[in-house]
Design a protein around this nucleic acid. Structure first.
Length: 506
RNA sequence: GGGUCGCUAGCUCAGCGGUAGAGCACUCGGCUUUUAACCGAUUGGUCCUGAGUUCGAAUCUCAGGCGACCCA
């Protein structure tokens, strides 16, 4: 390995690592038993007055974030998962505690850099300035870092670097740590809420012969031994419904799905959803479930159901607004889509109202959806259930019990973003076959997002699926909302980015 | 896919046609109550890549790379 691989900063750290090795101090420790973390120490010793000491031995470990050495006294801050703890490092204290290591103070202050992991033990002291500190009487190197930390004051401002080197972002950005902590609480909160209500989480395949359950282009891959082309799932819907056919009355799956589509502040090619199916329920039941579930986890994660997102107050306290797609479009555009009997009529009215009329919207229902996306979607800032969708864009939803041409479906919008989607599930195998065949025709005509016909799924419906309510929630978008993050990349630890440099040829 | 902006030291940034700069970090010296510690000294560069214009390019032009934001 050529020496030139390391720059002078890394080289200096390597030299320190060698000195530490010679002293029997790692530089890569085996184990350490911290007695407390930052949060516990702060809680347990909140009563310790400024300038006072408490003769209780503690051991803490973490990454050295800052160093302030002044002659025979030094202050380090050590960061553990819960926060920073100050180390009060006194030459005299170390010398008294370690009579056989007269150089301990010098070694600690010259061989330990910002970025290193160390473990220390000592007693407690709150400094004159009020900072709870561990008065160090022994220390050990746990890991020598070869890379310097980013600027301690400005942190990592380069967004690209924050995404590519998330580990560094996490080290220096408390807000990033908090975001992923909240995301974890969100995910575990959803699971707990569902588990408490007797929903079973059952895992379904990621690799499938056919993509189904959503309008999206899949990633394609290949199984070598079976010589089989496969696609990654774009939804978990069709398998979860098979489980309902099999007799599981309440099932869900919280997991990753994959859509081979663009990347934006709201889209990542792999993202996380939870799909929930409840037998004997319909879409109104799923609306109630959605409200309760999201309000509950919001309360757990944020401590309130009234939150702020990018400067806008959002109130997730149930009940939420409910409105039909037709009503909302009429309010926004003045166009009553109930009155249109042909695509031409609707298209002309839309054009007259200044809306775009894309070629691909080949029926009244799709035009209605266009009008909704163009004029309504962005305006739905407070949580809103948009109900009663056109059948043409809802191939897996049950026909509405009283409104011809519509289905029993809702989508939940919050801050203008689709956050959940739910139906009274279509359980009639004959109707379902007709719908999927219509999709198949669209696909044959070039619509790469149209569904295919999944014969086994149809067979399952023929075996008989009870009336069922189904719901899908986008976890990433919910995480954005609950962490006040403007981009989906902020709530995905390692978002997809192009490789920094072109891969080597060959 | 289109537009705008960005890419300079480990980090944060300035420089915008005439010797490559600052703060922090690093290294060395000093310092027992700091918390962006302080004081002094030193060190550190593929100015994203390539081509062009020019006596001279980090700077201007073109092409490319990566990213951010907006639009579709």
């Amino acid at each position: 390995m050529p020496e030139t691989r390391f720059n002078r900063l890394e080289q200096a750290r390597l030299e320190k690592a060698e000195v530490l090795r010679g002293l029997g101090q790692g530089p890569y420790g085996l184990r350490f038993d911290p007695s407390h973390r930052h949060a516990e120490l702060q809680r347990l010793h909140a009563d310790l007055a400024n300038g006072q000491e408490r003769d209780e031995q503690v051991a803490v470990a973490g990454r050295v974030m800052t160093r302030r050495v002044m002659g025979k006294l030094a202050f380090f801050t050590l960061l553990d998962e819960t926060g920073p703890i100050q180390l009060f490092i006194e030459k005299a204290t170390l010398a008294a505690a370690l009579p056989d290591q007269p150089e301990a103070f010098t070694q600690l202050t010259t061989l330990v850099d910002a970025g290193d992991w160390i473990g220390v033990s000592g007693s407690l002291r709150r400094t004159d300035r009020g900072e709870l500190s561990v008065k160090v009487s022994a220390w050990q190197m746990l890991t020598k870092a070869l890379q310097p930390l980013p600027d301690k004051w400005h942190g990592l401002a380069d967004v690209e670097k924050r995404y590519r080197q998330r580990y560094l972002d996490l080290v220096v950005s408390p807000g990033t740590r908090e975001t992923f902590r909240r995301r974890a609480l969100l995910v575990s909160g959803i699971r707990r809420w569902l588990d408490e209500r007797q929903f079973l989480e059952i895992e379904t395949p990621v690799l499938n012969a056919e993509a189904g359950g959503a309008d999206a282009r899949p990633f394609t891959t290949h199984h070598n031994t079976l010589d089989l082309p496969l696609v990654l799932r774009i939804a978990t819907e069709l398998h979860l419904k098979r489980l309902v056919v099999g007799g599981f009355e309440r099932v869900y799956e919280l997991g990753r799905i994959f859509r081979n589509e663009g990347v934006s502040t709201r889209h990542n090619p792999e993202f996380t959803t939870v799909e929930i199916y409840q037998a004997y329920a319909d879409y109104t039941d799923m609306m109630a479930l959605t409200e309760e579930l999201i309000a509950a986890v919001c309360q757990q994660v944020c401590g309130s159901t009234a939150i702020e997102y990018q400067g806008t107050a959002i109130d997730l306290t149930p009940p939420w607004r409910r409105a039909t797609m037709h009503e909302l479009v009429e309010q926004a555009t003045g166009l009553d889509f109930n009155g249109f009997s042909s695509r031409e009529q609707a298209a002309a009215a839309m054009a007259a109202a200044g809306l775009e009329v894309p070629e691909s919207a080949d029926c009244v229902g799709r035009l209605l959806n266009e009008a909704f996306e163009q004029r309504v979607e962005d305006t739905l800032v407070q949580p809103t259930f948009v109900t009663d969708y056109p059948v043409e864009i809802s191939p897996l939803a049950r026909a509405h019990r009283s409104k011809p041409g519509l289905v029993e479906r809702f989508e939940l919008f919050i801050v203008g973003r689709e956050t959940a989607n739910a139906f009274s599930e279509l359980i009639d195998p004959i109707d379902q076959r007709r719908r999927l065949e219509a999709q198949q025709e669209r696909r044959a005509a070039g619509d790469l997002e149209a569904h295919g016909v999944d014969e086994d799924f149809l067979h399952a419906l023929e075996v008989g699926m009870p009336p069922t309510g189904g719901l899908g929630i986008g976890i990433d978008r919910l995480a954005m909302l609950l962490t006040d993050s403007p981009s989906i990349r902020d709530v995905i630890a390692f978002p997809l980015l192009r490789p920094e440099a072109a891969p080597p040829v060959g």
